[in-house]
């Protein structure tokens, strides 16, 4: 711990806790075994605040704040679980399901999917929001990997891992709002990419069946994101 970073004390769910001033609410919660559901967050990557699942209530503001990108501060009073928060978290997951074509039963990531797990933990047994059924492309031009936009939740983990860890910045996001999509280079087929190193980190950390290894069938695609914190730590120690 750097001696220059001050320690602050705050209240989370009524408990008095402390953390470094450069930590987020989510950091302090995970250090203290307080579970907050997340989707776009991944330890080892920068916070993004895209999915809004980690929204928490902070006393003094009527706005809900994403725990993954909100820094702790002296005297903060945070609530991580309430009927209101559960309502919004359930709504977020339902919107993700209705926005694209997540057909769990025939998905290669069935049983190993973070969106599916969230539906289960939030006790979502059906989607109240009408499904959109957009017509979306599928890119299997890469030798090793596939990109299925039907399953993408726009968490941008692939964008961040490619930029921050691999240093290639092959991935990016184009479009706005509901038309947003992850793209390869300047929106070209993955197989034609000049920048992709084929390292596969994006595939290993994709929370759903959007990025998968070729050759995997229904329910056969298992993800492996455990390597990331170690890789980040190792690099920090080198520099």
């Amino acid at each position: 711990m750097s001696t220059a970073t001050p320690v602050v004390t705050l209240k989370i769910d009524g408990k008095d806790l402390s953390g470094r001033a450069d930590e987020t609410i989510l950091d302090v919660c995970s250090e203290n075994k307080i579970h907050i559901p997340t989707l776009c967050f991944l330890e080892g990557l920068s916070g993004w605040g895209a999915c809004r699942l980690c929204l928490v209530e902070v006393k003094g503001t009527s706005k809900l704040l994403p725990a993954c990108v909100t820094r702790v501060a002296e005297g903060l009073e945070v609530t991580t679980n309430s009927d209101r928060l559960q309502k919004y978290r359930r709504m977020v997951v339902q919107m993700l399901f209705s926005e694209r074509n997540h057909v769990c039963s025939v998905c290669v990531s069935n049983g190993h999917c973070e969106l599916q797990d969230l539906a289960k933990t939030l006790e979502i047994t059906h989607i109240d929001i009408p499904y959109r059924y957009p017509k979306l492309p599928f890119d299997a031009s890469h030798d090793l990997f596939r990109l299925d936009h039907n399953r993408c939740v726009l968490c941008t983990r692939c964008v961040r891992v490619c930029d921050e860890i691999e240093g290639a910045h092959t991935w990016d996001v184009m479009g706005r709002g509901i038309e947003s999509r992850v793209i390869i280079d300047l929106n070209q087929p993955w197989g034609d990419s000049q920048t992709c190193t084929g390292c596969g980190k994006c595939v290993r950390i994709c929370p759903t069946g959007a990025l998968t290894r070729k050759g995997t069938g229904v329910a056969e695609m298992e993800k492996d994101d455990g390597f990331l914190p170690y890789l980040t730590k190792m690099r920090e120690n080198q520099s």
Partner: peptide
């Protein structure tokens, strides 16, 4: 009672919807 993914989510039959 909606029994199974087709009744609950539409599932495989809805895969024709985008087309």
């Amino acid at each position: 009672i909606a029994l199974g993914d087709c009744a609950v989510t539409g599932n495989v039959p809805t895969m024709r919807n985008p087309f």
